[in-house]
Computed example of a mutant assay.
Amino acid sequence: MNRAQLGAALRALRVASGKEAKAVARSALMSPSKLSKIENAKLAPSATDAERILTAIGVSDEVKAEYTDAARASATEATAWRLLKRIGVHKGQQAAKALEAQMSTLRLFQPALVPGLLQTPEYIRAILKRHNLSEDALTRTINGRLERQAILYDNAKSLRFVITEPVLRWRIVPAQMMAAQLDRIASISRLPHVDIRVVPLAIQQQDIASHAFVIRDDRMVTIETVHAEVVVTDPRDVSLYVDKFERFEQVALAGADMRNLIEGIRNDFLREQETG
Results as ranks from 00 to 15, higher is better:
residue 7 G to D: 10
residue 20 E to I: 00
residue 26 R to L: 09
residue 29 L to M: 07
residue 29 L to E: 08
residue 40 N to Y: 02
residue 45 P to C: 04
residue 48 T to W: 05
residue 49 D to H: 09
residue 51 E to S: 13
residue 52 R to H: 14
residue 53 I to N: 03
residue 58 G to N: 05
residue 71 A to E: 03
residue 73 A to P: 00
residue 75 A to T: 08
residue 79 T to H: 01
residue 87 I to N: 01
residue 88 G to Q: 08
residue 88 G to M: 06
residue 90 H to M: 09
residue 91 K to M: 11
residue 97 K to A: 15
residue 105 T to W: 08
residue 118 L to N: 06
residue 118 L to S: 06
residue 119 Q to S: 04
residue 121 P to G: 06
residue 122 E to S: 10
residue 125 R to T: 14
residue 126 A to C: 08
residue 132 N to H: 09
residue 137 A to V: 07
residue 139 T to S: 10
residue 144 G to C: 12
residue 148 R to P: 07
residue 148 R to E: 05
residue 149 Q to S: 09
residue 150 A to R: 13
residue 150 A to H: 11
residue 154 D to V: 06
residue 156 A to F: 00
residue 157 K to P: 09
residue 167 V to L: 09
residue 168 L to A: 13
residue 170 W to M: 11
residue 170 W to T: 13
residue 171 R to F: 01
residue 175 A to W: 00
residue 182 L to P: 09
residue 190 R to Y: 06
residue 201 L to R: 13
residue 204 Q to D: 08
residue 208 I to H: 02
residue 208 I to G: 00
residue 216 R to S: 12
residue 217 D to S: 04
residue 220 M to R: 15
residue 225 T to H: 03
residue 226 V to Y: 07
residue 227 H to K: 07
residue 231 V to K: 12
residue 233 T to I: 11
residue 236 R to Q: 07
residue 236 R to A: 08
residue 241 Y to G: 05
residue 246 E to V: 02
residue 247 R to F: 02
residue 247 R to Q: 11
residue 248 F to G: 05
residue 251 V to I: 15
residue 256 A to F: 03
residue 265 I to T: 07
residue 268 D to C: 11
residue 269 F to T: 05
residue 270 L to A: 05
residue 275 T to F: 08
